[in-house]
Amino acid sequence: MTRGRPSGGSRTTAVLGVLAGLALLLVVLVVLFPGWFTPYPPERTDLRNVLQAPSPAHLLGTDQLGRDVLSRLLDGTRLSVAIAVFATAVGVLGGALIGLLSAIAGSRADSVLMRGVDVLLAFPELLLALLVVAVIGGGVVNTAVAIGIAAIPNYARLVRGQALLVLRSEYVEAARMLGVHPARYLVRHVLPNVSGPVVVLASIGAGTALITASGLSLLGLGPRPPQADWGAMVADGKDFLQLAWWISAAPGAAIVLLVVVVTLVGRGLQARVLR
């Protein structure tokens, strides 16, 4: 019996997954070692080279203060990615806690928790994050927390559904009949079965967190100047679109590309988990 050859679509997906993984590795290197890649100090101003178009000296041009856009873009990768990762962690931890409590609690507690989750799901994540920022204030940490809180309902729903499937399985019922402590089968059976889908959703949700963080920065609710952040860079260039489009175009393209890369990695993980 011969093994069938992979289809053209499968090969294309595999190639895209490898390329996305390599691109994500490059992003990690930029985040960990930004000084290796930045040709100029990100905050250095040069009023003699204001709004210079892309050239060999400045590959992505300069902004309204003469700062090198490429250097600021690479330096801003660290802050933008950190906000997205921290926000995703807040969403995963909060959602997992609520989802597990809802799954193991009684029907009344489950109903109350899920009705609250349904109310939060009625709001778009960006709007919900705006509401949270309006309450707790802006800044790097508050922005990440706000985005994470806005993402909690999605993870709570997923964890609850997966946990209920495992808790209703025959081997968990057998463990209950044998008198196994609930904490033991939660750790040995429920959490391992829940972790796979959660990792997949988190990898895709990190892209959404990045977009939301950039949107908040664009509105002036993110990191404070002079910190380099992709959303703030887009906002810096919005008043110079006709004279210096590259100021906003470079970080905007970076946001789109990183979201695509993260989504491709998440889809690859999803295909492996569901295989």
Rank of each mutant, 00 (worst) to 15 (best):
M1C: 11
T2Q: 15
P6S: 15
S7Y: 07
G9E: 13
R11K: 10
T12P: 01
V15N: 10
L19R: 06
A20C: 03
A20L: 02
G21S: 12
L24A: 09
V27F: 13
L29E: 02
L29G: 07
V31N: 00
L32D: 00
W36C: 11
W36E: 08
F37G: 04
F37H: 02
T38V: 14
T38C: 12
T45W: 12
D46C: 04
D46A: 10
Q52I: 11
Q52L: 15
S55I: 02
A57R: 12
H58D: 09
H58M: 03
L59S: 03
L59T: 04
Q64I: 03
L65E: 03
L65G: 14
G66A: 05
R67A: 02
D68A: 08
R72C: 01
R72N: 05
D75R: 12
G76C: 00
T77H: 00
L79G: 12
V81E: 01
A82I: 05
A82P: 07
I83E: 02
A89H: 13
V92A: 06
L93E: 05
L97S: 15
L97H: 09
G99R: 14
G99Q: 09
L100C: 04
A103R: 02
I104H: 14
R108D: 08
S111V: 09
L113R: 13
G116F: 04
V117Y: 07
L120Q: 14
L120G: 06
A122S: 11
F123P: 09
E125C: 10
L126H: 00
A129M: 11
A129Y: 04
L130G: 00
V133L: 04
V133E: 02
I136Y: 06
I147G: 05
G148T: 10
A150K: 07
P153T: 03
P153F: 08
A156Y: 01
L158W: 11
A163C: 01
L164D: 07
R168I: 01
R168F: 04
S169A: 13
Y171W: 09
Y171L: 09
A174F: 06
A174M: 13
A174E: 07
A175R: 07
M177F: 11
G179A: 10
G179F: 14
R184G: 10
L186I: 02
R188Y: 10
P192Y: 05
V194Q: 01
S195N: 09
G196F: 10
V200G: 11
S203I: 05
G205K: 05
A206E: 03
T208W: 04
A209I: 02
S214H: 05
G215S: 03
L216H: 10
L216R: 05
L216Q: 14
S217A: 13
S217N: 13
L218Y: 15
L219Y: 09
L221R: 13
L221G: 10
L221H: 03
P223E: 02
R224Q: 15
R224A: 13
M233I: 00
K238T: 04
Q242S: 13
I247S: 06
S248P: 08
A250I: 00
P251I: 01
A253S: 04
A253V: 14
L258H: 01
V260N: 06
V260I: 14
V265A: 08
V265H: 08
G266H: 12
G266I: 02
L269D: 09
R272L: 11
R272P: 00
V273C: 02
R275D: 05
